[in-house]
Design a protein around this nucleic acid. Structure first.
Lengths: 117, 117
DNA sequence: CGAAAACTGAACCATATGGTTCAGTATCTA
DNA sequence: TAGATACTGAACCATATGGTTCAGTTTTCG
């Protein structure tokens, strides 16, 4: 069974709960960027953006590296895995419960078989 | 392309960023519960737990119904769908980028294979 | 060298969050 | 009807969050 490191899920989901930070992740999905570039894109001071990047970094969602004056931000190596795993595990229980309530027992049965529970 | 209702993702991820609330969701995954029961389980005042339930309800993750004195909480009908969809979409970009970069991706791939559990 | 660019850190501010207590209200139940 | 149970709401508190400004520091470049 997967063990969820509680505190990391905290910071991971908290990082994702801000629209600006999700925007930064999308931005970095298409290309790496400096703090300055991100700050301009999101109409924010350098300092403000640096804080957001700090939060994302803390959550393992991005990594940064400074070369000369410029700190370059890129997507982290596996940041979303844990959060995705937690959500997927919950979703199985979720859907099983609603299938049962709807009277559509097929999915539930299948879940139970796989689950070994 | 999927359009993500920004403000709902905000409240959804924010709701998930607290360990107590994730615990409540797990609890409700096995059975419905009253505010009192949840408060006892998580060693918290009624008022405190009611706030947490309020946050989860706002996020669409639980629904509640009051019968007599007792408010019963249960899992909401589709609360995690949007968050899960956002994460999955990001993960594809994520993984594509790391596939291109090579490196740490092996472990990540293995995770994905096991994911079908 | 000297000035501009890019970041960093401290300090500040308003608001939100996670929790409490206390004082209700509504609903059982004896 | 009286008292216990279950919740509700207001008020409060400490800390966190999202943002700012301002005053640096380090690099780059003419």
């Amino acid at each position: 069974m997967v063990q969820f490191s509680t505190s990391h899920l905290d910071v991971c989901f908290a990082a994702l709960s801000d629209a600006t930070r999700r925007g930064v992740l999308e931005e970095l999905g298409s290309s790496d960027a400096s703090i300055t570039e991100l700050a301009q894109k999101f109409q924010m001071t350098l300092t403000g953006m640096k804080k957001h990047v700090g939060v994302l970094e803390q959550a393992g969602l991005v990594t940064t590296e400074k070369a000369g004056r410029v700190r370059t931000c890129r997507l982290g190596p596996s940041g979303l895995e844990e959060g995705a795993a937690w959500i997927e595990a919950r979703r199985q229980i979720w859907n099983a419960r609603f299938d049962a309530l709807d009277g559509v027992v097929e999915a539930l049965k299948r879940e139970e078989e796989v689950d070994g529970q």
